[in-house]
Every structure is written in C-alpha cells, then in structure tokens.
Nucleic acid binder design. Structure first.
Lengths: 314, 314
DNA sequence: TTGTACGCGTTATCAT
DNA sequence: ATGATAACGCGTACAA
C-alpha cells in the first residue's frame, strides 16, 4: 500500500495518458469523449480508487451548491423531537429530495456563515436572532417559515392569531368563562397567545397563564378550559388533568393547536386547530428550490377540528 | 444599487486599503492583526455587506469540512416520519451539534458522491446498496448503524436476533403456540424475523407470515399472538385487532420492537423489546466526530419490556 | 504587523 | 475529439 497523495483528476490523467480536461469531461460531459476512451478512464479511476471530482473543488469552481440549509429554533436535534416540526420537515425533505438536492441542518450562527448551500430556510426564528442576522448577511435566497417576516424574502406561514381566536371562540360558544392559557415564548407562540386573549377579552372572559397547571387546577375557582399553544402542550395538559383526577372533557375542556397525528390518537381525541404542516413544508421546499428570486408570500388556512376533548362546562 | 460583482476578500482589502491577506487574517487569525485595524476591516465588510470568506473556497483551501453526512434507508423524508429513526437521529444530532458540525442529509447516490463532509453515517442500509458502494468509494471515515457490517469501519448496532428471540420466548412462556410474524424486508427486519423463527421453531410452535393480518385473524385457528418487527407494525396490528373485534391482550397478544415513546402510550401499552435508540445515536455521533480512524464496534444491549399487550392465551 | 507568491482541485474557454 | 490555459476565492509559508 502506498501512502499515496490524494487522488485527483491529474492522477487519473497521468495514469491513462490523457489530459486532466479529458478526465473531467469523462465525468461531466460524456458527449465530449470517445465512449471507448471514457470507459478506459472510468475503469482506471475505479481501479485506483478515485471516486470522482472532489466535491469541494467542484463546488468552488462550478458555483453549484446542490444543497439547501435549514435553521430551526431550538437547536438541531429539535428537528427530530417535535412532531409538528417533523411534519413540516417531511414536506420540505420530500420536495428537496425530488429536486435532487441535499438538506443541510445548520447548528448555529457560525454554521450559517459557513454553510455551502444555495438557499436557506428559517423556521420559526425570533426576529433579531443572531441566526437571522447571519442568514441575512449571507445574501442568499431566504425562505421564512412562520417567523420572522422579512421584507423581500419568501414567506410561508399561517394566520396563527386567527387560529387561536377560532379555538377560544369555540370554547366561549360552549359556555366557558374561566380559562388557562398555555403558551411558550417563541414568535408563533406569542401570536397564538395574542389571538387567545383577543377573543377572551372581547367576550369579557377571565383567563390566567399559570406557571403550574396542576396548581391552577386545584384552585377553588379553577379554569374550566385550557387553551394550549400547541398539541404537545395540550397533550401534557391532558396528562396533568388526569393526574388531578379531572375527567376531560366533563370537568375540563382542552384545545390544542397544529393537529399533529398524536392529537387524533389521544384519549380523549384532541379538539385542535389544524394547520397544513406537510403542505407548508412542501411549499417551503418549492420556494427553496426555485431559482426565482421573485418575492412570494403564502399564508395557508387554519381550521378548527372538533373532537372529544371539549364540552360544555359542568 | 450597483449590480456589484460578488464580494471577495479583495473587495474589502481594496476598500480598506490593505492586502487581501490582512483581511483574511482579520477573520481567521485575529492575533496577527492590530485590533484597531481588525475593527476597521470588519466594519468595512459589514458596511459593504460582506459576510466573510466564501464557505466553498474556504473548504477547498483548508480541507476542513465541518459537516457529517447521513444516509438513510428509505429516502430523506423518512428521517422525520419514523419515530424510531427520529430517536436515533436525535442522538446523532445532539452530538454533532455539540461538536459544532452541521448535519447533511444526503438524498441519493449522486448526493453521496457530491457531499462535502468529513465522514458519513450509513443507517440501516441493505448490503450492496448503491449508496453503500458510493460511500465506500468516497474513502471517508464511515460509521455504520445497524447494517451492513463493513470490514474496517466503525459500527454501532444491537443484537436484533437476540431481541427477537426474547420477544418470542416471552410469548412461548405464556403458553402461545400459534403466531403471526410481521416483518419488513430491510436488513434489520430480516434479522428480527430470523430471531423469531429460531425461537419458535426450537419450541415447535406454529407460525405464519400473513400478507393480510385482518384475514389471518378471521381464520378458525387464528394466531393467538403477534410478533412484530417494530413498534409501528405492532401499533398497526393493535388497530387491526381492534377493528376485528378482538380484545388485546385477552384474545390476542402483541409484542413490538424498539420501544418508541408511542409504545408506552398506546392502549393497551405495548410489550416490546427496548433498544437504546438515543444512546445508539450518540455513539454514532461520537464515532462520526472523532478523527480517530480506529476501528470500533459497539453492540448495545436489548431488553424485553413487559407491559399490557401480552397475556396467556384465552 | 503586513504583503508576496503559490497552490487547493476543479471547470470553462478556446484552440488544435 | 482532445489539450493548454485561465479563472474560482481563499489560506498560509515566508519574506519584508
């Protein structure tokens, strides 16, 4: 075994006795070559263990990137943790894959600056986040999912606030007057919280945002309904209610948001606000793939799905 | 707005009135520069909208890749579909992220050949698959998860066959004699099937591999137990049994494999063979990150988790 | 502390 | 059909 310098086009060229250009053509422009010669070259390459032009060099020279980058809110592994994110990413991945591109999951700000990609997708990032700044600095085609809204960049999202109002109004219509709100601090969560409050305040209903739901449910004038900013939170609330000895929906109504698959399987099945996560991902994927810098904004519809976790207050 | 040539180090150098090297140093070797000058350079860069050295060029020149590649069985979007894969990938992602690397999801054979990565992870690929060949050709550090076993490459997996035997023996011990096997065609699925058969044949029990479980359950001497190659299949079987009017575990016992989170939530909770998916991912991640070409093989333990989907036959 | 010079491995152009 | 040559944008000895 020779410790052998790394193999390059030139190595093969020398071995076969042709020029570097010809070897390059053997890989990239088969029509520029006598088929027989091409065969000889490829055979020699295989024999020497050369697997083709170096990807890094090829990218520098050609300007092609053949990959799109993905930035998520809560770190990279979040992609595989959160069912809602999973559905979105599935939509993106399908489209990207069909286009023959790779998907680069970017870990942090430095990763953004260093990513060899043709476009970047920002998923639910807080406005002003370092990653957003970095992405903007890259001057690449950007596609924003959900947040933040960026002038002159493609966008796909939903009307979170309206969805939240739908949920709240459903419970109000059932006769609920005392609510617990369960929302996080992300941009979309804030929108949803705002929607809940709008509807609730308009109806003059009472609401709180408990630090500890279990505690709130133990209170004397406990809430009769929970408005959750996501199905995951709603599912957790379901558990909390069960632990507290409350029967859903008889003692407590719960509404989620997203309509992840698990929402339909839970017992009782979750009433929730559906958003077309898969479709959202597909659209994001198309936006990422299309060379068109054309500014486009897509806002997808939301829809209340009434299942079994909501009822009139006892 | 000038249509401006793409910005390079030289652009900034010219603007500030220093050499290209100095600008490069401002980014890569701060100690080689007067802090004041560095500030001026960075300011000018920011002003001009230059976001730093071109990632592709930097990679070619430096030889650093700062990303690891991931190859999955069933296409890219599979990563976000399958809960078992999700858990594994979560483990990988965490480790990769901690190392400051990006994660490249590679779509196909061409993607493998073209991936700008420092190492590749093959997850449960069939032996001889084009992607495996391509990965081998790249001559990069390879880490195999589950399958296939490759000489001279890092490996992490479990003893699928033993896990399957555990499941089968559990049911045999309960007194079952007629079984339905539900396995796929992937390499790991085949191993598990083999494990089921070994135990069953050794006990002289009867088994079938029905194309249609519903049909099999309708038969006169229907199986009293189902051995599934994954929790997903087991969960589907649960549904099928319910639709057939069978009560699990009274009328039918079902065992899964993997112990995904959903296995504990189902009704009834699933008896299954647990494998440490998260840990498997973390180890794969470490193997991918470590520069060490040292060959390593890790086989993680499996364990039977008895919950509520199995009982003595009626 | 700064600048000069030389690749890194490839692809595109243009000549032969 | 094949080959010489010039970029691509950058990193880093080494000299100044």
């Amino acid at each position: 075994m020779t410790p052998s310098r790394p193999l390059t086009l030139q190595t093969i060229a020398d071995a076969v006795g042709v020029s570097r250009t010809t070897v390059s053509n053997a890989y990239n422009r088969p029509d520029q070559l006598a088929p027989a010669l091409r065969e000889r070259i490829l055979a020699a390459a295989h024999e020497l263990g050369y697997s083709g032009p170096d990807p890094a060099a090829r990218r520098l020279r050609s300007g092609r990137r053949d990959a799109v980058g993905l930035l998520l809110t809560e770190g990279l592994s979040h992609a595989f943790t959160d069912p809602a994110a999973g559905l979105l990413l599935q939509g993106i991945a399908r489209t990207i894959e069909d286009a023959g591109l790779a998907l680069l999951l970017v870990p942090d700000r430095d990763g953004v600056l260093d990513a060899v990609v043709q476009s970047l997708c920002l998923c639910a990032l807080p406005e002003g986040h370092p990653n957003v700044e970095a992405a903007l600095a890259r001057r690449l085609p950007l596609v924003v999912v959900d947040e933040p809204r960026l002038a002159d960049h493609a966008y796909v999202g939903i009307d979170d606030r309206r969805g939240a109002r739908l949920a709240a109004e459903h419970l109000l219509a059932l006769g609920h007057r005392r609510f617990a709100l369960l929302c996080g601090e992300s941009a979309t969560q804030r929108e949803r919280r705002a929607g809940f409050r709008e509807a609730l305040d308009a109806a003059g209903a009472r609401w709180e945002e408990p630090d500890d739901l279990a505690e709130a449910l133990a209170a004397d004038d406990r809430p009769t309904a929970v408005l959750a900013g996501s199905d995951q939170r709603a599912l957790a609330a379901l558990e909390t209610a069960r632990d507290a000895g409350l029967v859903v929906p008889h003692d407590l109504s719960i509404v989620g948001f997203d309509d992840i698959p698990g929402a339909a399987w839970s017992v009782p099945a979750l009433t929730t606000v559906r958003q077309p996560l898969l479709r959202k991902g597909e659209i994001a994927g198309q936006l990422l793939t299309s060379a068109a810098t054309a500014r486009r904004e897509v806002v997808l519809p939301v829809e209340l799905v009434v299942r079994c976790s909501t009822a009139r207050p006892a």
